[in-house]
């Protein structure tokens, strides 16, 4: 289809986010959009946000669970950028007036003590770069209607990133068995789901290595002090107005968000 390029996709996605307007998948009209071009869209949106004053604080992984990969018909996760504008302060409600259809998913998050440059990063070398481990809730918000998208669509949309909130307690990684670190997801006081870190690529460290290697292939690296959200452990749950979503972790404490 004539008329689509990185520039236009960047404009459409940024406008959708700013105006809280959901889109049909870009690939409906631009079926040739490939992953490399989709990442170029993602990077250009970031460049413009940074030029406008936002600061990169880390990366997130998406589609790290086998269940989600099967649903999407893909066999590999994706990455997106996290900026300081996405930090949701503890106790603050999810800003409904800034988001389209927010959903929350529990995640294990890493803060890096030193840089990680792929390719060639393994789960073991990745863990050696981790300074602290947090439990968190990521608020995702696809700019596509009903979260309907193909892999290039969601990559261009910065992996549906919107907001995130971390638990108050960061623990050193050598004290945790992250494959067995569990989370209970509670909505309005009722347990709706549970999982462990093994749901994320077998172990969250595998997801971290994957992020480092993915960035490495694009000539980028994970920096010291960056945060890495390793991917949803369970399915995401809607955070509509009035909703209260809590994630209770085995060792990493509890995190709660409200829908305002």
């Amino acid at each position: 289809m004539a008329g689509w390029d990185v520039e236009r996709a960047v404009g459409v996605l940024m406008a959708a986010e700013a105006d809280r307007r959901d889109l049909e998948p870009i690939t409906d009209e631009w079926p040739d959009l490939d992953l490399a071009t989709a990442y170029a869209v993602q990077d250009e949106v970031l460049r413009r946000k940074v030029a406008a004053g936002e600061r990169v604080v880390g990366v997130k992984l998406g589609l790290t669970s086998r269940a989600k990969q099967q649903r999407m018909g893909v066999d590999s996760p994706l990455t997106g950028w996290l900026t300081d504008a996405m930090v949701l302060p503890t106790g603050a409600p999810v800003p409904q007036d800034e988001l389209i259809h927010p959903r929350a998913e529990p995640e294990i998050a890493f803060v890096l003590g030193r840089p990680l440059a792929g390719p060639g990063v393994t789960a073991a070398t990745a863990m050696a770069a981790v300074d602290r481990v947090y439990g968190g809730l990521e608020i995702i918000d696809s700019r596509y209607r009903d979260f309907r998208f193909t892999l290039p669509d969601v990559v261009a949309d910065n992996a549906s990133s919107a907001r995130f909130v971390l638990g108050a307690m960061g623990l050193p990684p050598d004290r945790l068995d992250l494959a067995l670190e569990a989370v209970l997801v509670e909505v309005g006081g009722a347990i709706v789901d549970s999982a462990t870190g093994a749901a994320v690529q077998g172990h969250p460290a595998e997801a971290l290595a994957l992020a480092a290697n993915d960035l490495g292939r694009r000539g980028l690296r994970l920096e010291a002090g960056w945060l890495v959200l390793t991917g949803g452990m369970t399915d995401a749950v809607p955070v509509s107005p009035g909703a209260k979503v809590a994630a209770h972790f085995t060792s990493l404490g509890s995190v709660t968000v409200s829908g305002g």
């Binding site: 086998r66 494959a179 067995l180 670190e181 569990a182 989370v183 209970l184 347990i191 789901d193 549970s194 999982a195 462990t196 870190g197 093994a198 749901a199 077998g202 452990m233 209770h248 972790f249 085995t250």
Partner: peptide, 24 residues
């Protein structure tokens, strides 16, 4: 043991086929 927050991983061969917590 804190059964409510105790994690469980189910493997078939080498594959993770399920995870959860006692509180489920």
């Amino acid at each position: 043991v804190d059964l409510r927050l105790a994690g469980c991983v189910l493997h078939r061969g080498g594959d993770v086929v399920g995870t959860g917590a006692g509180g489920a």
